[in-house]
């Protein structure tokens, strides 16, 4: 049983937090939000491959 427990993942660590005044956000959540914003902007400005040759 102890061997099995030793193989289990490490306990969850609190992670890194950023704060600006009353705003506080965990680094993982901030990365996800910034990625979504980047995808949104890129989807609007990047040309679609092969788009010109289609009907």
């Amino acid at each position: 049983m102890h061997e099995l427990l030793a193989q289990a993942p490490l306990p969850v660590t609190p992670g890194t937090y950023f704060g600006w005044g009353p705003v506080m956000i965990q680094s993982g959540n901030l990365v996800v939000i910034l990625t979504m914003l980047a995808l949104f902007i890129l989807a609007l400005i990047l040309p679609f491959p092969g788009g010109r040759s289609r009907k």
């Binding site: 995808l39 890129l42 989807a43 609007l44 990047l46 679609f48 092969g50 788009g51 289609r54």
Partner: peptide, 8 residues
């Protein structure tokens, strides 16, 4: 439809 806006 040939736009990234229609991919997600």
């Amino acid at each position: 439809v040939a736009s990234w806006a229609y991919v997600f």
